[in-house]
Write a protein that binds this DNA or RNA. Structure first.
Lengths: 133, 133
DNA sequence: GCTTCATGTTTACAAACGTAGTCGCTTCAC
DNA sequence: GTGAAGCGACTACGTTTGTAAACATGAAGC
């Protein structure tokens, strides 16, 4: 039994950890990067072979997370989803899963578990002040 | 090539989504629950068979996330890791992965993306005030 | 004492993932 | 034009995950 839900070819296709690393590299390149570029910026560091990077790129294309545009005999890849959307989605997932959807609970937890330094607290406080107006 | 690192039987074994649902049920039961109990509280709702629940429990035992204590011919299962530790760990993972380890960035993102209501903001502000003393 | 039921253990199997090799085609240098 | 190099597509393979059936065993009822 397949695990996906989807129906009308919609694409909230889950991005895996390895794929995410590739996405980060793509976001860094403002869109237009070749497989080799990605390999240079993320593959090498992670000790992936170029082949691995290519596989990940293909999978991301299938998942409609990135698009290709021909550039001579090769492709340039560019993200189809904005980093902030991705980040927002993942954050929401976590909040839903662990904090019953209450984002404030997450903040509370971070604060209580001292994941936040005094500086962080000040920074956030400042931020809130701005947002509340 | 295996993905695990571990060496001296250490156990930061990753808990999967399905396993997490079981953990939540266990945390709810203040520790002592039978496979049937877990099935009743989470398996049924998710339309898992009792067999599935048993598999997940076994895997959690292997991963040393829960312990068993005999109770007649069956086992009672209890968490070996506190929910708040788990939650903290997962939160940290997310912050590391998406916000370069800066928790404040996560809060900023939640706020800016309007994942936080005005009430949330007030609540957090209140919280911060207490924490900063 | 046997059947039945509950329960943990073992085995199963497809899909997803991480990781990578190979194939086929094109192009560039000689 | 012939060979090397670059590149995407296809194939591969072990592991993890989701989901579950089959099996063994012991208890409990009759």
């Amino acid at each position: 039994m397949p695990r996906k839900s989807s129906s009308t070819g919609e694409s909230p296709e889950r991005i895996t950890d390895a794929e995410h690393a590739v996405m980060e590299a793509l976001w860094d390149h403002d869109g237009n990067a070749s497989a080799q570029d990605i390999y240079d910026s993320v593959g090498a560091a992670r000790e992936w072979s170029l082949a691995t990077v290519k596989t990940l790129l293909s999978r991301l294309v299938q998942k409609q997370a990135i698009a290709t545009s021909p550039d001579g005999r090769r492709f340039l890849y560019s993200p189809l989803i904005a980093r902030s959307d991705y980040v927002g989605g993942e954050s929401r997932r976590l909040v839903d899963k662990l904090f019953g959807g209450r984002a404030a609970s997450l903040v509370a937890h971070l604060a209580e578990s001292e994941a936040l330094t005094m500086d962080d607290l000040t920074e956030i406080e400042q931020l809130l002040k701005e947002l509340k107006q």
